[in-house]
């Protein structure tokens, strides 16, 4: 553990924590609205720790959907994490077993994006940095859920204070961060069209899996580009 790297991670995660805070509070408020107690809402944020899927979960629970279908939907919305953990495997191989356990528990979208970005720049991915970045988002997420659940009434209409626009703009910023990658435009175009079509014909939350799969399959099927970097298989660091 080095303190400097831990605090570097904390500083890096701080703006993301700010951006995620309204959603933690919003989740708390919506969860109570859907029949959760305050303790249930905090428990879910502390154990599931995956914002979009938590929203889907409480929505389905509030509509009395079968429990197995709620869990399946949470799994589907979070399925992208399988790809995240595969993709950052090369950067976290040096973590101990316990460190990996904790690291994967904390693997939310921005944690993945920053780890990937940092690794791509050639900066070291130390456990101290990873933990600092993760905890500065995780702990406030739980506190904000608690605050939101308690003061749920005060949020009233989330649209009146413009909360609904923050999540899509935030994810749009993350997408733009990857614009220098190979075949960025075709992948984003196909995923956008497929997710909108999925939303229209199948419905939420399936548009996430449908859109993601379309872009990923396209990337796998396009002929390999001449400028491809040297393989970065995990076996090389073994």
């Amino acid at each position: 553990m080095t303190k400097d790297e831990f605090w570097e991670g904390v500083r890096g995660g701080f703006p993301i924590m700010l951006a995620a805070s309204p959603f933690g509070a919003l989740f708390g408020a919506l969860a109570v609205d859907n029949g959760f107690t305050i303790a249930d809402a905090v428990f879910m944020s502390a154990t599931v720790y995956a914002g979009a899927s938590q929203m889907v979960g409480i929505e389905l629970f509030g509509n009395h959907v079968q429990p197995w279908l709620v869990v399946l939907s949470v799994f589907a919305v979070n399925f992208r994490h399988v790809l995240y953990s595969a993709s950052i495997a090369k950067y976290v191989r040096h973590f101990t077993f316990g460190q990996k356990f904790l690291a994967f528990f904390l693997l939310v979208d921005p944690q993945y994006a920053e780890t990937e970005k940092r690794g791509e720049r050639g900066l070291p991915i130390s456990f101290s940095w990873y933990l600092g970045f993760g905890l500065v988002i995780y702990i406030p997420w739980i506190i904000n859920t608690l605050v939101g659940a308690i003061f749920g009434q005060m949020i009233g209409d989330p649209k009146a204070i413009g909360l609904d626009v923050l999540l899509p703009v935030y994810f749009m910023g993350l997408v733009m961060g990857f614009r220098k990658r190979d075949r960025f435009l075709p992948i984003v175009t196909v995923s956008a069209l497929a997710s909108v079509a999925g939303m229209h014909f199948v419905g939420s939350p399936w548009h996430v899996s449908i859109g993601a799969l379309a872009g990923i399959v396209l990337a796998a099927c396009l002929p390999p580009s001449g400028t491809a970097a040297a393989p970065t298989g995990v076996e090389k660091e073994a």
Partner: peptide
């Protein structure tokens, strides 16, 4: 890691996050 799998993995973040934006 087969090259096509690697290309697929590289596409993951943009492909997934786009589905949270476009709709």
């Amino acid at each position: 890691i087969p090259p096509r799998l690697e290309a697929a993995l590289n596409a993951v973040p943009a492909a997934v996050l786009t589905t949270l934006v476009a709709p």
